[in-house]
Design a protein around this nucleic acid. Structure first.
Lengths: 219, 219, 219, 219
DNA sequence: TATGAATGAGATTTCATTCAT
DNA sequence: GATGAATGAAATCTCATTCAT
């Protein structure tokens, strides 16, 4: 007689086979995103999600392995979407300023759209090493894009004094942090309300100027 | 993200009366910062802290009301220190670039020094509405300072197109986010190691150029 | 920030420090043995044990790691007792028949005394590889003793055709199985009630005769 | 060990009507035996069995009332087989030694053949009162046969000092226990590997000698 | 007959926090 | 001041079993 340790039941994540199943899994996905958005991933319980989905906790475990796993799935949806979009929206003919502007707005919109997933992954990244890695992969994409801007700017004779990597990382942090504060939370300044158009324009300008603006040496 | 806790906590933190008491409370403070730094606030347990302090969990509750409260106390130490420093380090005679540089480096150094507290408050801000407020107060200081830079720059005829509030918030997010990623975690780019001097210089430059660099109108 | 995986909290089993603690741990031990005896180890829950001990389930986990661990501790008590006794009760001067008789009765009495532990370990051995090993160690002691009888008998010209190892194992299985059936359960024959004296005598005789062929009346 | 379940189960097992149904039920039977052998009855889940049968858990419940019931059915198969064989293999003309030898070998072979069922019933007997009874019926057959040997031996002037019932039970326990340890598990002595021929011979001899005092070489 | 999906009931375990000493 | 011991309240997860199709 062997043991449970000897041959652990392999839990294979199989996709739902029937329409009912697909509907249910989808209901859980939606509910999870909702709950994550409202309570935050760390505060959310499987019971919360199941209740929001109008299903039992046990049903949750029929479809997903754990709270972490459903987040992971949402995250996969996210990365896939990002990948698909990346190829569409790129217009190499336009000027750097336009390109930067497009990218910034793109980032901003995506952040809004995927808020629960992004904040969820971020929260979990504080606790779990695997998700720290996932979080990094999200960032790295943005950082690399921006890195190209910096290199581009330097080729054209600007931004010579900037360290390419740190500058890219810093600007990515700016976009990321700004979106987090204003979209996931309520911003930092008590009296100020978010005006998305102004916000995107400002972010876009900051990126562009910081790369293509010249230092005034006659200060 | 909303929260739910509302029960009033009648306990008042009493300052330690004896030398032994003071020593113990201090040991807990140090231990808490250590543990928060190592495991993160959310992962840390009171037992962890007590063990690190060489004391019992029950003793912890003699000195502090809860895990949250000791973080709060550390946080108060932090705000006090910041306030004290703010008055020292300000040199109104120097040029904007120098002022910005000093402020950025100051921010960076403070971040290093208070890492456990800052990340702790940040983590807890994800879960607890009160701490979300505390977190905001940390940020607001930085944002306000930077806001003055922006206004200054605009007075001198630069950065006209930037929204004052959003620009300030964005630059603060840049500093904050960059420090978090590179000081609390390992940065975003796999192969790149942190060079604090270059990093600070780049951050400083980005802030300055983004405010005082001119847009190239002949794009 | 490290992770829970990186440095799992080491749960060291420390012996109770105060009288209260010792009393409590002992209460759990007794309760566990009771419950194991009544419901069987596999059916028993931590809640059962805690209730029987007049304590909370959480208190159980203060003293022991798991249901398995408390059984392990009881089992350690058992092995220790066995070891201690083994040295007392051995009289090398007496005849084989007497020695065998003593050993059989010893085995029988020990079985009665440690019934809950022995059946518990046995039950768990069906499911858990580690406990299968523990169970084996219990048996091996008996088997080795009996093995010496067989060798002795063969030296004296008896039992020549028996395989030493299998004979020893078989006789041990007889003692073991008989005790299990009649002491842990109700025996096999519906109408027959246990008479311990006759039972021990019969077991003793079976062992002796099967090795020496006949009863030595002049012992 | 007491039990608690008392609720009446009104379901009646219906024999499969179609060929497909029979095939399926049979597949479950085979799979169950396999799984019980591999994981042990207590560790086995209905899902395991269904998976092994290449069917769904729900289908299992179409054919059988519960995990216990399929074991019960296997067990019935076993008892039937035993009954059938009992009448074949008995040769009243041969000597006691030969009869005992045949019976021992018969027992040993049957044990091998029905291992999953026997260990399953045994395991369940630890938890469930009904199955304790079933287990007893398995044993009782063997015990009664052996009881006849003892009475026979006593009639011929041997084994006078043995208690008939306990002796029979003890010898049955020896066969049973030995087979369990060496066939279901890996035996007790680390270095020793099972040699079925020697094992059967030794068991047979032990039974015979313990009753008749010596081997009759002129049999 | 068969299945994917669903569920109730329970067991384990953790942890912040309190209490008696 | 300090501690060992204790606990309530949760959260996670498993599994036998049922149900709609």
């Amino acid at each position: 007689m062997d043991d449970e340790e000897a041959s652990p039941r392999p839990k294979v994540a199989k996709p739902p086979a029937t329409r009912k199943g697909r509907k249910s899994a989808e209901a859980f996905r939606v509910a999870a995103a909702d709950v994550f958005a409202q309570r935050g991933f760390l505060n959310a319980t499987v019971l919360d999600i199941a209740t929001a989905a109008g299903r039992s906790p046990a049903a949750f475990y029929y479809h997903f392995d754990s709270k972490e796993h459903i987040l992971l799935e949402l995250f996969k949806d996210f990365t896939q979407t990002i990948k698909d979009r990346a190829q569409e929206r790129f217009d190499p003919a336009s000027s750097p300023q336009v390109q930067i502007d497009q990218m910034v707005r793109n980032f901003y919109q995506t952040y809004i759209e995927w808020l629960p997933v992004l904040t969820g992954v971020f929260q979990l990244s504080m606790i779990d090493a695997d998700f720290r890695e996932h979080w990094r992969t999200i960032r790295v994409d943005a950082v690399r894009s921006i890195r190209h801007w910096v290199i581009d700017a330097q080729r054209r004779g600007f931004a010579a004094d900037l360290d390419v990597d740190f500058a890219a990382s810093a600007l990515a942090a700016m976009l990321d942090g700004f979106c987090f504060i204003w979209l996931a939370h309520d911003g930092d300044l008590p009296a100020v309300r978010l005006d998305s158009e102004r916000a995107q324009r400002t972010l876009s300008l900051l990126c562009y100027i910081s790369l293509y603006g010249a230092i005034d040496d006659d200060r």
